[in-house]
Amino acid sequence: MTEAIKLIIDGNSVTVPPGTTILSAAAELGTEIPTICYHDHCSSYGICRLCVVEVEDARVLQPACVAEVRDGMNVHTRSPRVERSRRTILEMLDSAVNLNEAPEIQAQLRDYDANPKRFENGAKRESIIIDDNPMFVRDYSQCVLCWRCVQVCAEDAQYTYAINFSGRGFETSIDTFFNQSLPESTCVFCGQCVDVCPTGALKPKREWLLEQGQTPDEIMQLTRMERRGRRRSG
């Protein structure tokens, strides 16, 4: 094994193996760096940038989830630059996406004193609730574009490739081929996308129906009908 890497995070020294991310090194010290897109069992692409930290001598902030430690690195996880970026990212996200069912992001909004009115006139990403299968519903007005569902549907887990993106920039959305319904797509209803969704964008149908005020018996009846209907039409 190559030599251990010694670095300083918020004034505290820590020694970790080469290849460790700043996020993991900080965790060794008990320092929690906030993340949205990061997931222990998904590839990290450094998308949400909430985990950015200030590394001395680096031109721009570094994404802690993918940036690897270097010997002698001096990291600041809550400097004014870091705070400004995290707060602004959270304020902009809050103004674009319905985060009511994202308790972790709600806590981050509080932690960073995000002002919910700062961008209140900005465009929102609206969407209808897509109820096209008996297993789960999709409400992309709650989607934060963390990419996890696309990743687990592809090389991170299932190799099903039912979903990808449409649009670009602010208009980006998760989508199937030409918006086909999930039963028409290659989706195998493994449910892993629902598991990794950090907001209410992907929700088990049963949970959704219970929220709509339906009783468990009514739900059982309904989903049984849906399954029969599909078999007949298929």
């Binding site: 949205i36 692409y45 450094g46 103004s95 900005g122 465009a123 993106f165 920039g169 602010f170 208009e171």
Partner: peptide
């Protein structure tokens, strides 16, 4: 910039839109 942002990272995906608005 809002038109040409790829939409991958949050600062640019959201920031180019808010800046334009």
């Amino acid at each position: 910039f809002a038109d040409e942002s790829c939409g991958k990272c949050y600062p640019c995906q959201l920031g180019t839109q808010r800046q334009y608005e």
